[in-house]
Amino acid sequence: MTPPLPPSPWPASARLRLREFAAHDAQDIVDMHHDPRVRALLVDDHPLHEPRAAQGFIAGMQAFYRRHEGTGIWCAERAVPPDPESVAEARAAHAAGEIDDALLARVQAPTWRFIGWFSLVHLMDAPGELEIGARLLPEAWGGALALDGGEWLLARAFAGLGRARVFGHCDPANRSAAHCLRVLGFAGAGLAPYSGHEAARFQLERAHWAGWHALPRRERLRRVRGMG
């Protein structure tokens, strides 16, 4: 049996958290898929720019969470720091005894904004295997959020679920996604059919993950750049 996750949200890092999709997320999904940059290099594009399709996706995923506990496609949110002036005013009011600890904590807490999703699901052509994936808004490209989420997914797959290997896929032209997978420790495994298209396949073994993720991220980035 797959161990269930505790109630969401789950912190992947101080700047990223994941949670189960809810009905109120439909418009965010629609808006994301209206951006042609998001859909340009997808290997499993679906009409999620249409409200009915987005609502159906969420309903299906909510059922999936309960049928396949511990795996799924999860809503990703990034932390937005509070306004510095508001924090300064709140701290001054707290020092003067005008507000209590709880109110100060609320003012200092970040808000959370939708940036896409991360997934840990079974391979269509090999249901006994898992793959990780992500679909993010352009504002989250090229930064650390994809690595934060990927590391959380791999910890879930290897440490939480005891998997021997994990796969990843991307469009063969998607150099950014391939780079991210390599920084996470994946090695190229050629091309493979994927949802009616051809995708670049990557594979990561648990033994390599254990040693690779013991390295600081900066060192992993340096080594991948050195590979050319």
Score class of each variant (00 low, 15 high):
M1R: 11
P6E: 02
P6C: 09
P7M: 09
P7T: 13
A12G: 12
A14V: 01
R15A: 14
R19C: 01
E20T: 15
H24Q: 13
M32N: 02
P36G: 06
A40S: 13
L42W: 01
V43P: 06
V43S: 07
H46Y: 08
L48D: 08
R52P: 00
A54Y: 12
A54D: 04
Q55W: 05
A59D: 14
A59M: 07
G60E: 13
M61G: 07
Q62S: 09
F64G: 05
G70N: 02
W74V: 09
C75Q: 02
C75N: 11
R78T: 15
A79D: 04
V80N: 01
P82E: 12
P84G: 10
A88Q: 11
A93Y: 00
H94L: 03
A96K: 14
G97Y: 08
D101T: 05
L103C: 09
A105H: 07
A105S: 12
V107T: 14
T111G: 15
T111M: 11
W112D: 12
I115Y: 08
G116I: 13
G116L: 13
W117F: 12
V121A: 03
M124G: 12
M124S: 15
A134K: 14
A134M: 14
R135I: 05
P138V: 14
W141G: 06
G142I: 01
A144Q: 01
L145Y: 03
L145E: 10
L145F: 11
D148E: 13
A159G: 07
R163W: 13
R163E: 15
V166S: 02
H169W: 03
H169C: 03
S176L: 13
A177Q: 11
R182C: 10
R182Q: 10
R182V: 06
V183P: 05
G185M: 10
G185Q: 06
G185S: 09
F186Y: 14
F186Q: 01
A187L: 04
G190D: 03
L191I: 06
L191T: 10
P193D: 01
Y194P: 01
H197N: 12
H197K: 11
A200S: 08
A200N: 03
A200P: 00
L204V: 07
R206N: 07
R222K: 12
R223S: 13
V224P: 07
R225N: 11
G226V: 09
G228T: 05
